[in-house]
């Protein structure tokens, strides 16, 4: 069987959902963040697959940007989480309840 674009897309869709699941059910901020990275990677995979099968480099270019953005986001995000941890000694999302109605 020939490997077509849909093979890659299914992998990417499943991976995306796994990542989303991670964001939804894990409670540790860092683990949630890892789920987010999975989602981004899934999107990247889809982009590259499309790019390849459409003979169009823009998709790969987008992946390049996505990776860069993800790196920046992770840097800021982790710094934030560390700052939070310093303040409250927790990285659990369920502890973020200082502002409730």
């Amino acid at each position: 069987m020939d490997i077509g674009v849909h093979h890659y897309l299914i992998v990417s869709a499943v991976l995306f959902c796994i990542g989303l699941l991670g964001v939804l059910i894990r409670r540790g901020l860092i683990e949630m963040y890892m789920g987010l990275e999975l989602m981004l990677n899934a999107a990247n995979l889809a982009l590259v697959a499309f790019s390849r099968f459409q003979n169009n480099l823009e998709g790969q270019l987008m992946v390049f940007f996505t990776i860069t953005v993800a790196a920046a986001e992770v840097a800021v995000g982790l710094a934030l989480i560390v700052a939070l941890y310093r303040k409250r000694k927790t990285t659990d999302a369920t502890d973020l309840t200082s502002m409730k109605l």
Partner: peptide, 27 residues
């Protein structure tokens, strides 16, 4: 900080969704 973290997690999730959407449209 808490606000920042919340914005961060949800914002990053939105970005991921956005990128995936862009990927599909591009495809």
């Amino acid at each position: 900080l808490e606000a920042g973290v919340k914005y961060l997690i949800l914002g990053a999730a939105a970005s991921a969704v956005l990128v995936y959407g862009i990927a599909l449209i591009y495809g």
